[in-house]
Design a protein around this nucleic acid. Structure first.
Lengths: 206, 206
DNA sequence: CTACTATTCAAACACTTGTTTCATACAGTT
DNA sequence: AACTGTATGAAACAAGTGTTTGAATAGTAG
């Protein structure tokens, strides 16, 4: 039926992304997933081995792309002659917002990411931190260099707040809805601008 | 055995708070809850009617207290002659941090709150917003009055970021762990101070 | 074609889920 | 003392869970 021209694996991943974002990892069953994906129930265990492994592959698929784009954007910024706090933050948030707006299920994934952080589940948190923590460290280092007068402890607190603000805002639980007058592209740019201004000011707090 | 001097209802609520925070609403079963609470399985349905209703009562118990304290703190602040952005933010965050540090399961509840926001589940979100939205509006109004030059649209974005920063940071104080040299009380005050500084600066961003 | 592997499918597996039932125990009242 | 409503208990309920099985089907290389 739907997406019949995508592979079984991809259809499972997309359906799982949607349903896990909607109902949580425990809340969505493999029967729901395979039903939406138009795939036999056994296909999940055949292609992914287990439900838990499906979840990991799901994160891998998106995060590999996200961290690659973030790394590229940061490198680009650091190459310029005048590196500003705003430009570093922009390099961090722009790829995420692009993903959040991607038509191919990226929206669901961003919500899934927020959920993963809310999960106390240590396995998933370790998986994310092990595989993608180094990028975050790169950003932290760049930001630290731009705020030489800021005590390390203060910096850590504020980076924490910044992460929270971004995670929360991106998964659009927030009040902010795209007004009909704006295109998605404009809304995305607007969100990025708002976030960068807020985060930069917060990081520079006296 | 444990907490035998608490009522069955209270023991269920406490155990549920812990387990739901740890594993999510779908992830923790009533059998786990009743086992931890040292209570018969049927007691949940007897005292609360259903699992869903148990969840609601759980939120009610904590949020009633939290919103009451926030309202009181805000009124106190607004009574003073010089109301600052910092003092309003302090009134908002202090009760939450007190709760987050409460020994009687408040820590779990705060994590639960973060999880509830991550839930796409509309029933729970409506329950929270219906019953406790008015307090948030009060704070938004007070903050708006203190930032007369800020466009409404900008204000909404920034309040969104502030909520995110707080939710995320509170849900287990993010990366920030209490150093052993500090008492919990000191750590709490520190967190509040850090948050207020960050949020105030972000809200005042040029 | 044949042989072979990779994939799909329906059915079953063993187990857990929230909820209900009904018998039992324990108050407090008359 | 018997009666009453509240609370607890063990057991069962139907439905849903992730996973496994073994046969049926494509699809491909020799």
């Amino acid at each position: 039926m739907t997406n019949q021209h995508f592979s079984t694996k991809d259809r499972i991943l997309s359906a799982a992304e949607d349903l896990f974002a909607k109902s949580g990892f425990a809340g969505a069953s493999l029967r729901q997933v395979t039903s939406v994906a138009n795939v036999n129930l056994a296909a999940v265990n055949y292609h992914f081995g287990s439900k838990e492994n499906l979840i990991n592959e799901l994160f891998k698929r998106r995060l590999d792309e996200l961290t690659a784009q973030r790394t590229k954007a940061l490198e680009q910024v650091l190459k310029e002659s005048s590196v500003t706090l705003e430009s570093v933050l922009e390099a961090f948030v722009a790829p995420a917002l692009t993903l959040a707006q991607d038509r191919g299920g990226g929206q669901s994934f961003v919500r899934l990411l927020a959920r993963a952080f809310a999960e106390q589940d240590q396995r998933l948190r370790r998986f994310v931190s092990d595989n993608y923590g180094h990028v975050l460290k790169e950003f932290a280092k760049s930001i630290s260099a731009l705020l030489p007068h800021l005590a390390k402890e203060d910096l850590y607190w504020r980076l924490d707040f910044v992460s929270g603000a971004l995670t929360y805002a991106m998964s659009d639980f927030g009040m902010i809805k795209k007004p009909p007058t704006l295109t998605e592209e404009q809304h995305r740019r607007n969100a990025a601008r708002q976030f960068v201004r807020f985060a930069a000011a917060g990081l520079r707090a006296p």
